[in-house]
Nucleic acid binder design. Sequence first.
DNA 1: ACGTGCATGTTACTAGCGGTAACGCGAGTC
DNA 2: GACTCGCGTTACCGCTAGTAACATGCACGT
Lengths: 214, 214
Amino acid sequence: MDTTQRTDQQRAADRRRRELLEAADRVVLRDGPQASMNAIAAEAGITKPILYRHFGDKGGLYAALATRHTDALLASLRAALDAPAERRERVEATLDTYLAAIEARPQVYRFLMHPAEGGQAGDQGFDVGKHSAPLLRRMGEELAQVIEERVDLGPGSQQLARVWGHGIVGMMHAAGDWWLGERPCSRAELVRSLADLLWGRLAAAGDKVGGPGF
Amino acid sequence: MDTTQRTDQQRAADRRRRELLEAADRVVLRDGPQASMNAIAAEAGITKPILYRHFGDKGGLYAALATRHTDALLASLRAALDAPAERRERVEATLDTYLAAIEARPQVYRFLMHPAEGGQAGDQGFDVGKHSAPLLRRMGEELAQVIEERVDLGPGSQQLARVWGHGIVGMMHAAGDWWLGERPCSRAELVRSLADLLWGRLAAAGDKVGGPGF
DNA sequence: ACGTGCATGTTACTAGCGGTAACGCGAGTC
DNA sequence: GACTCGCGTTACCGCTAGTAACATGCACGT
């Protein structure tokens, strides 16, 4: 077993892995995150143990699957965030990019946000805080980094940036989730409303007549 | 079967139902949301079919369980939201109430936010948008209502209030989730940072030297 | 006193899941 | 030819949600 052959084998394995991931992708897109390992194996034209040899367990497969989509989405978000424009324009572009992505492929979105379903074995450790979708955490951290790098927040800026990063991402996520379910307005309107919120319109607005105001 | 007896039976059934819910509560608090129906039945000192007679299926039991906690949390949030104080103080009080609740009982929190785990049968309908925790939706709607009632937002205020309601709740949720996992700062600091974000400090901050700024 | 409902409870089962052990098989190596 | 080794299979385990069928006790009408 010289080096070239080992490389060949590894390449073949990698290609196989990619094929399996694509098959899993199709099934997850069709059946949702509850897609069974049997179904995925059948779609790939093989049987379960092969999946387990490649990915360890269901979590491993789903993690590999999620990493793909997460990377792709994060890349486009970074692009929107780094575009040469004013701050507000960038915020709106980033919001719109995210919302367009979840609008275009809601099944992928649902999978990314709730990948940890099923699983009746183990999980007894059950650390609070680890259950949230990794995508949200990654987006929050990335946004925090961008804020910390570019916005002058004075002392304690790093911590503030992280709070804001996760907070803004959560705002975007929750509003997007709600919007996707009810479609109460156009995407552009949603983007504007959220940007207005971030721009302090809540603080600037006056009380309504008759009460002390929220 | 006259009316009084029917009432008696119903009362007995209701008491039983409450007992079962309390047993389920104990198990969920101990084992997390993956608690099996068998475990819950054992904790209640009975067997599975009784649970199914009372709650239909696992989702029914979990919904009943969630409604209890959700109602309790919503009540305290409403109290904070309706306190006689300035708007910013109220926002901070509400944020703090929520964060204190999830800090005090993280298991309950985790259950409320991710009640839809397990479950390998059915669920094929799989409507996007319904998967989010009902608690988040309810909080979003309630907050939207309060905003719409009390803040003067001009035309289109209803829609704007709903977007903001869900957005702010999502911000609070995501930041809280992250904070609970990493504990990077005190609760009071987190509350202040989030309130600052809502008060437009992002828009007001200047760019950092050397770049166009986020 | 005697059946008749009815609610409550049980045991025993199905179907499907994630995951694994044990084996078959073909290709390259000595 | 024997030997290893990676790919693939069948057949299984233990678990789950959910259900059918049977047993029991209590209040009723006659």
